[in-house]
Amino acid sequence: MSTFELYAALAAVLFAVGLYGFFVRQELVRKVVGLNIIGAAVFLLLIAIAYRNRGDFADPVPHAMVLTGIVVAVSATALALALARRIEDETGTRRLPEDEESS
């Protein structure tokens, strides 16, 4: 197994873990953490691709994408956490009701 394959496989595992957390956990903060793990998987894959594409140095384009991606993910996470807090203030719980109609 090459270095690239190792990291790509690790990205796949992280992706699955994040997806599991996102769908199975009910608490909003845990869902957000799950999404961030998925994000980490994507960034890991991009860095692995940068390593695979290396010539004299690693491919810079995926690095730029990861940097931007981190900024975007942090902003979205901040918004999600702020919303989760407001929901807890309003309803006393950090979970969404199962039934859409009652919300």
Binding site: I38, V42, L96
Partner: peptide, 22 residues
């Protein structure tokens, strides 16, 4: 709650799209 559901769905969607882009 509606905003939260929207964000969760759209956030996941963005990451799936980004995975595809990668």
């Amino acid at each position: 709650r509606a905003g939260m559901r929207y964000l969760l769905a759209a956030f996941l969607a963005s990451l799936l799209y980004l995975m595809g882009v990668a």
